[in-house]
Deep mutational scan, measured.
Amino acid sequence: MTYKLILNGKTLKGETTTEAVDAATAEKVFKQYANDNGVDGEWTYDDATKTFTVTE
């Protein structure tokens, strides 16, 4: 399945996607991606759209 991440960081905004077997796996990938890019904030997940959002 394809999962999407929306980044609403103070210095980085954008979107990315990943292929993962489940939401938990996608979340690990996205949290590492956000961490690597210096984005740390509040996370939400919408199962209907398979979209994670992180907002600083």
Rank of each mutant, 00 (worst) to 15 (best):
M1T: 14
M1N: 14
M1H: 15
M1E: 13
T2C: 12
T2R: 14
T2S: 09
T2V: 14
Y3P: 00
Y3I: 01
Y3N: 01
Y3F: 14
Y3S: 00
Y3R: 01
K4D: 02
K4W: 11
K4E: 03
K4C: 06
K4S: 06
L5E: 00
L5R: 00
L5M: 05
I6C: 05
I6F: 06
I6L: 07
I6A: 04
I6Y: 07
I6V: 09
L7P: 01
L7W: 11
L7Q: 02
L7C: 07
L7Y: 13
L7I: 14
N8D: 10
N8R: 12
N8M: 11
N8E: 08
N8Q: 09
N8P: 03
N8L: 14
G9P: 03
G9S: 11
G9Y: 06
G9Q: 04
G9I: 08
K10P: 09
K10Y: 11
K10D: 06
K10L: 14
K10I: 14
K10V: 13
T11D: 12
T11V: 12
T11H: 15
T11M: 11
T11I: 12
T11C: 13
T11W: 14
T11Q: 09
L12Q: 11
L12M: 14
L12H: 13
L12A: 08
K13N: 08
K13G: 05
K13Y: 10
K13C: 11
K13P: 05
K13R: 11
G14N: 09
G14A: 14
G14K: 13
E15P: 04
E15H: 10
E15I: 13
E15N: 07
E15F: 14
E15C: 13
T16A: 12
T16D: 03
T17V: 10
T17C: 08
T17K: 08
T17M: 10
T17R: 10
T17E: 09
T18N: 03
T18Q: 05
T18S: 05
T18R: 05
T18M: 10
E19I: 15
E19H: 12
E19K: 13
A20C: 06
A20Y: 02
A20F: 04
A20D: 03
V21R: 10
V21H: 13
V21A: 14
V21K: 12
D22T: 05
D22M: 04
D22R: 03
D22Q: 03
D22G: 04
A23N: 06
A23K: 15
A23D: 06
A23W: 14
A23S: 12
A23L: 10
A23H: 11
A24P: 09
A24H: 10
A24T: 09
A24Q: 12
A24E: 12
A24R: 10
T25M: 15
T25R: 06
T25H: 13
A26D: 00
A26R: 00
A26E: 00
A26T: 01
A26F: 00
A26H: 00
E27C: 12
E27G: 07
E27I: 09
K28V: 10
K28M: 11
K28G: 07
K28W: 11
V29L: 10
V29Q: 08
V29I: 13
F30C: 02
F30R: 00
F30N: 00
F30V: 02
F30S: 00
F30D: 00
K31L: 07
K31R: 15
K31I: 07
K31A: 05
Q32P: 02
Q32K: 15
Q32R: 12
Q32N: 08
Q32D: 06
Y33N: 02
Y33I: 07
Y33K: 03
Y33Q: 03
A34N: 02
A34M: 06
A34W: 03
N35I: 15
N35L: 14
N35E: 12
N35P: 02
N35K: 15
N35Y: 15
D36Q: 13
D36L: 13
D36H: 09
D36T: 08
D36G: 06
D36V: 11
D36R: 10
D36F: 08
D36Y: 09
N37T: 07
N37Y: 15
N37D: 03
G38Y: 06
G38R: 07
G38W: 05
G38F: 07
V39C: 05
V39H: 04
V39F: 14
D40W: 15
D40C: 12
D40T: 14
D40L: 13
D40H: 15
G41P: 01
G41E: 01
G41M: 03
G41F: 03
E42Q: 12
E42V: 15
E42A: 11
E42W: 13
E42D: 12
E42S: 10
E42K: 11
E42L: 11
W43P: 01
W43F: 04
W43T: 01
W43K: 00
T44S: 13
T44V: 11
T44G: 07
T44L: 08
T44I: 09
T44H: 13
Y45W: 04
Y45Q: 01
Y45T: 01
Y45V: 02
D46C: 08
D46T: 05
D46Y: 04
D46N: 11
D47I: 10
D47M: 10
D47E: 15
A48P: 07
A48K: 12
A48R: 10
A48Q: 12
A48C: 07
T49M: 06
T49K: 07
T49W: 04
T49H: 06
T49D: 04
T49A: 07
K50Y: 11
K50A: 06
K50H: 13
K50C: 06
K50S: 06
T51E: 04
T51P: 00
F52E: 00
F52M: 02
F52P: 00
F52I: 01
F52D: 00
T53H: 06
T53C: 07
T53R: 07
V54D: 01
V54F: 05
V54R: 01
V54E: 01
T55V: 09
T55H: 08
T55Q: 07
T55D: 07
E56I: 09
E56Y: 12
E56D: 08
E56S: 09
E56G: 05
